[in-house]
Design a protein around this nucleic acid. Sequence first.
DNA 1: TAGTGGTCTAGACCACTTC
DNA 2: AAGTGGTCTAGACCACTAA
Lengths: 263, 263
Amino acid sequence: MTSKWRELADRLAKQIRNGEYQPGQPLPHIRTLVEAGEGSKSTVHMAYKALEAEGLVTSSRGHGTVVRHRTPLKRLGIARYDKAKWRDGDEVAFIADRVASGRPYHRGEQTQTVSRVEGSHLVTSALGLPDGAEVYARARLVKEGDQPTHTLTSYYRPEHVEGTRIVDPSPGPAGRGGGFRVLFDAGYEIDRMRERIFARMPTAEEADLLSLPAGEPVVELHRTTCTADGTVVEFAVGVHAASRFSWEYDFQVPDSARDGERA
Amino acid sequence: MTSKWRELADRLAKQIRNGEYQPGQPLPHIRTLVEAGEGSKSTVHMAYKALEAEGLVTSSRGHGTVVRHRTPLKRLGIARYDKAKWRDGDEVAFIADRVASGRPYHRGEQTQTVSRVEGSHLVTSALGLPDGAEVYARARLVKEGDQPTHTLTSYYRPEHVEGTRIVDPSPGPAGRGGGFRVLFDAGYEIDRMRERIFARMPTAEEADLLSLPAGEPVVELHRTTCTADGTVVEFAVGVHAASRFSWEYDFQVPDSARDGERA
DNA sequence: TAGTGGTCTAGACCACTTC
DNA sequence: AAGTGGTCTAGACCACTAA
């Protein structure tokens, strides 16, 4: 026997997926369904909480419960790191990205704070430093319009960035060309990257910071960037609202019998 | 003013993150906290549901509520597709993966059903077929021990696989060497792949099939595989329990000014 | 002010597990 | 049988939004 609220939730979920309730459209009010005999207020409420946790609707006091819009996922490919963008032009990677997707750029869509902190184990080991070493942390909160979409925090070895614009970033987001340009000007041209990604539920703080609706996971991205000689010059951690992004990677099928020991 | 159950949940979450409640250890019983004055049974229950939705604990009737184990994420890199594994040896990709990570392989850890179906738009467009065309679908449910970890469904153009072992798979998972080997033997050597990944909450059916605890997201993987001449020979969709996997990609920073038009 | 969802209570009862 | 979490009710009250 499946519970009363689960049955109601499944029925409504089916109707949402069918298109009987369109995105943006309100679901029946809780009290309406109570009068319709779907159960007590708490029971119907439980069904609505479940739909919220499944990412199908959002409820808000005073308003009601509406079907969530499914914004198309923004595709993130490695082309967003194109050297031509930040080396030859003035663009910052994320702005170039914005331009490419036809969305407007507004000042204030990215906040940034730079600080010198003791690195966590994750950070120091990625940068090849001993535990407890100090690093520079450049933390950004990126928004689209007034909706936050993700955080991105870059960590640098102090000797790589001391005296550069990264440490004292007056003119906007890390200045002309962004962080990779600054490293480039300091003699560190980035050459290879490794991205590691996984998903989880947000902490309560992250849900607050990114104003995530209940039932929205986050994708955590760990990016390690190094120069041609293998020096790691940046390690970055991103926390992305899962409903906004997808990641795309193209690669050759490896063949260790032919490539030798490359993997 | 933050609600009573939220305060309780936050307090418990903090204690879990602190390590005051270790993985596998039980939280206080609901009725205990009721007697301790944390509120009514429903109130405490709400706090526990929240912790469950945040992926921190699992509750079960008859037992109690215990802190979830955080199994280390299995790292999936492109080396798992190494041609040497399936072309020269007898291994199936996922088994080789298992061996590499030191986990035992048992028969029955993968179920498989093959059928000829009308492809969804996603599938047909990936395979370069007209809408509504028929394709072969090879659906696997992969387990580790008795816990399902992910589903993976491969779609093929009928003319590529008709008459091969894929269509009539008697000896285990697609036979010696797996699907790529069968394609190889049929004259289609895979050469390039594109993977696209994103996260979302599972549907109720997926949560059931993968026996996901409440508050566990899934990662959906779309894999397009083609031969050297660009023919798409496989399109696969995977649904992975998010707490079990991470994906890793290495790549060269692109430079359109030097590479010409490659992205 | 009227209407929305959200919180909270007290208590009955159910489903499941362990002993 | 005893103890666990889960469901459900009826109703009071709160927080927020809109007209």
